[in-house]
């Protein structure tokens, strides 16, 4: 394609939008709503996924040893744990460390009670390995394995927070996919209608163009551009809005759900937009493209 034809096509596409203001506006509005909701769900899913990841990388399994076990055997067990693929890392926690940690959490503000234990460590026999996993779904398999290892007294599983999160995340994923699918159809329908109106208004003109020697491509391309531009604008607006309000949403949610605050960790707006931006733009362009292609196929057999 020649440069001049390229610019001509772009210009005509934008002129089409301008001359068809009302319908274009309706399309852009629908697209905006569609992409806005998409972006919202996307952010939620992204954040949940990040939280699941956080939870997954937290301690999943604690391995306690038989009484009087040798240091050498503890090291051997460590190597066994290390050999498992689902384990991301593990770390030895001595009895003293366990007690310090416990005391911090449970006797916070009750130092006197804690002091009553004196130098005795009530968790004297609780040296352990904390095992961190890279795949939470393998947890039960790992536990079964570890329980069969010689020298292991007990394997404690952490709360199934991660699993719950994963389930919840999946649910949100399904719901948002459904809502977005419906919205996508509406958006495609509206765009294709907008372009159909543009085509019917220009039917006579299109006939003349053909008689002067315009190719199908030359006649059609501006309508495709029209669809793409509507899609792009319809994606840019909600992206802008989401960018501005994201911080506020995060603050609001964090405040409302302070009781599980420890679990809540939010992605920064940059992290979210790193993927949301291209995905939403591609979505907008895609909807515009599909919408215009459908109409052109139906109405522009010139």
């Amino acid at each position: 394609m020649r440069i001049s034809t390229f610019f001509y096509t772009i210009k005509q596409g934008i002129v089409n939008i301008w001359k068809n203001k009302m319908f274009s506006l309706a399309s852009v509005a629908t697209m905006t709503a569609c992409i806005f909701l998409f972006g919202l769900f996307y952010m939620i899913v992204m954040n949940f996924q990040a939280m699941v990841k956080d939870a997954e990388s937290g301690v999943a399994v604690t391995v306690l040893f038989d009484h009087g076990i040798s240091e050498q055997r503890i090291e051997e067990i460590g190597e066994l744990i290390d050999g498992r693929v689902e384990v991301s890392r593990y770390e030895f926690i001595s009895s003293q460390e366990a007690w310090d940690y416990f005391r911090d959490i449970y006797f916070d503000g009750n130092e006197k009670v804690a002091e009553s234990f004196g130098a005795d460590n009530p968790l004297a026999n609780s040296a352990s390995y904390a095992v961190y996993m890279n795949d939470i779904s393998m947890q039960s398999a790992l536990v079964t394995y570890l329980e069969s290892v010689d020298g292991v007294r007990e394997v404690k599983q952490s709360a199934t927070v991660a699993n719950t999160l994963t389930d919840f995340n999946r649910l949100i994923g399904y719901i948002s996919a459904g809502v977005i699918l419906i919205l996508l159809c509406v958006a495609i329908f509206l765009i294709s209608n907008t372009i159909a109106v543009g085509i019917s208004v220009r039917r006579e003109e299109i006939g003349i163009m053909k008689l002067i020697g315009a190719t199908d491509y030359f006649v059609r391309a501006p309508f495709v551009v029209e669809g793409i531009v509507i899609g792009l604008i319809g994606a840019a607006i909600p992206l802008g809005i989401l960018y501005v309000i994201y911080g506020r949403i995060v603050t609001y949610v964090a405040e409302k759900f302070r009781f599980i605050g420890g679990m809540m960790s939010f992605l920064t707006v940059k992290e979210v937009f790193h993927t949301l931006l291209p995905v939403a733009l591609v979505l907008g362009v895609g909807i515009g493209l599909i919408g215009s292609r459908i109409t052109i196929r139906k109405h522009l057999k010139v």
Binding site: T5, Y8, M209, G213
Partner: peptide
């Protein structure tokens, strides 16, 4: 100009 755009004439020549 349209007749020239159709045949892909350059903007300058148009």
């Amino acid at each position: 100009a349209f007749a020239q755009q159709v045949i892909g004439e350059s903007a300058r020549n148009i």
